[in-house]
Write a protein that binds this DNA or RNA. Structure first.
Lengths: 332, 332
DNA sequence: ATAGTCTTCTAGATCGTTCTAGTCGAACCA
DNA sequence: TGGTTCGACTAGAACGATCTAGAAGACTAT
């Protein structure tokens, strides 16, 4: 069995190249202050030894890790899309991302600790459930960016999607298709469920319509249950809290022989991977994960690199129309 | 605006507790050699200051981080289930997990580097796509455990599910229900697709049946496409490469008015979150994510803590019967 | 009393970097 | 000529932990 070999250090390279440690350091990180000829000699020595900087030592000294902590929930597919996009943006800005998941038996606080342990310079938390106070607590140590939630106090940055606008365009769209009996299946205890519900209510009233809210939740089964309730007095259109819930609603309708969109239009929220599938073709409000992720990474980097005051970025979502919404059936 | 305060160091704690740095170090890592009374005093001081050990400094000196690197693919829901379970097991064994995702534009090699940079003591890679040689290369630096793939050379540990057994029980089950025209929709270029396909072939032959393979892939759309082909000459049962593919197949059938399981039985693989949904009830081969995750974490920890030789653990999957499989229709 | 053993604690070296504050010539300037 | 500036380079102190060696005091054994 081959030994785990000790990796070469700056000192080793310095000896081979016949210069000091410090100079090798200068050359390795491309800093100015070395003659071109020696630079080449050092690089050659490094190559020959297979030298790779020990990031732990480097970071210990410079207290820079170029690491962004990202906290997501492993059970939310939409979060995965954000993670993907965040990687791209971070790497474009010269940062790496350290991930930590919130899972069953692993609360947000624990995820935060892990990320601080590995040296994250800022924290991006997707849909944080901690109280504004707790978040502020952490924000005293490192910049914290809340993604998809904006009522987080003024020590914490936030990047969110405009839920008012999202629900408003959803209602507008359905109204413009002639719907008047539009029901909202809410997200129960999920982050931003309250706001979407209330916005739905006021938008309906603004249009002179009667708001009806059916309790739901963020998962497929929640939608399934809501579908059952909806059947008792079928509306012509449903705005679901998210795509997963919409799926449950649609499955419930399908089982009962209710046609979509002929009998009921269904609108999702998130425009997730799932909504795009050819056999789903769910019309949905897109929060545009890549843009949100990019904005969050951008804020985090800006804060790390000196921006003093936290701020909040709000992006306007847009509607992606597919095949689950259509004109209201005649006679409604 | 309040300053971002410097995080407290051993020295700070030592001053507050009125002891030396070294003693604080002893207390913090629970090493023997401190009187109970001082231990309490130090712990209290640490708590009060909110002290957290700096893992970089610790690693630099001792090369212990108690950190396990876990690499998964953000687009695979099944991987998320493993991640969940891995967290639980790792924390039970006193380790933390550092995650790194493989995403578009972010190859496995990059994910590995990130994890080594934050100081992972071992790497667990879910369904690695790197060559056995490349994996062996990394295995010279840290223990590497391959999860869900076992042909990884003998420098790398592997924890996998027995694909032979999995497909065999799938075929056995369908045969015992009287099916003879059983088709396999394969996983295309996905890891372990080849093995499942070949096992399917030999199991069919063993039962004196004619194997038929339809090309597929790991996603819903792949299953959708395969469904189209299957319709041309409908079998009585289909074994899909995984649950996502099974979903696509079922949707295609449903659109064509083909009933499941009355007309065709469909069997998935992975027993994912999705298969369990009340309106899906997909019969599936379960690889038991929690057990696999626990085994992988176990191997990684064992290797870190001294086990010399890499080994491979193979777990036998089992069938989870729900509502998509039934007796073969009469006359087939 | 002397030596030996424990227990509890500490000083100082060390890990592999980066950073600060120089040194040492050579070139430049008036 | 003597002073300043500049470029190339280096010694040694950080960074925040762990580890080794050993000191100080209490206790035991002879």
């Amino acid at each position: 069995m081959s030994e785990l070999q000790r990796r070469p250090t700056l000192m080793d390279v310095a000896e081979v190249a016949g210069v000091s440690r410090a100079l090798v350091s200068i050359v390795m990180r491309g800093a100015p202050g070395a003659a071109e000829s020696t630079r080449q000699r050092v690089l050659e020595a490094a190559r020959q030894l297979g030298y790779r900087a020990d990031s732990r030592a480097r970071l210990l000294r410079s207290s820079r890790t170029k690491l962004l902590g990202l906290i997501f929930s492993s059970s939310q597919p939409f979060h995965s899309e954000i993670v993907d996009a965040a990687y791209a943006e971070a790497s474009a800005r010269g940062y790496e991302i350290a991930l930590s998941a919130v899972a069953s038996g692993r609360p947000e606080a624990r995820a935060i600790e892990t990320l601080l342990d590995v040296g994250a310079e800022a924290l991006i938390i997707i849909a944080p459930t901690l109280s504004a106070d707790d978040l502020a607590q952490h924000a005293r140590q490192v910049p914290v960016v809340s993604l998809l939630r904006d009522n987080v106090g003024d020590l914490v940055d936030s990047v969110s999607s405009d839920d008012y606008a999202g629900i408003a365009i959803a209602v507008d769209h359905l109204v413009s298709l002639g719907h008047s009996r539009i029901v909202h299946v809410d997200g129960g205890a999920a982050v931003s469920s309250d706001r979407r519900r209330e916005t739905y209510r006021s938008e309906m009233i603004r249009h002179g319509l009667q708001p009806v809210v059916v309790p739901g939740g963020p998962g497929e089964e929640d939608g399934m249950g809501a579908g059952q309730i909806l059947q008792e007095n079928l509306p012509t259109a449903v705005i679901a809290f998210n795509d997963r819930s919409a799926l449950g609603i649609m499955e419930n309708f399908r089982a009962a022989g209710i046609r979509i969109p002929e009998d009921v239009s269904v609108l999702g929220y998130d425009d997730s991977h799932f909504a795009k599938l050819s056999f789903v073709q769910l019309s949905s409000v897109s929060q545009d994960a890549p843009l949100l992720a990019a904005a969050a990474v951008g804020r985090a980097v800006d804060r790390i690199e000196g921006a003093k005051s936290p701020g909040s970025v709000v992006r306007t979502p847009h509607l992606v129309l597919r095949k689950t919404t259509t004109r209201a059936p005649a006679g409604n």
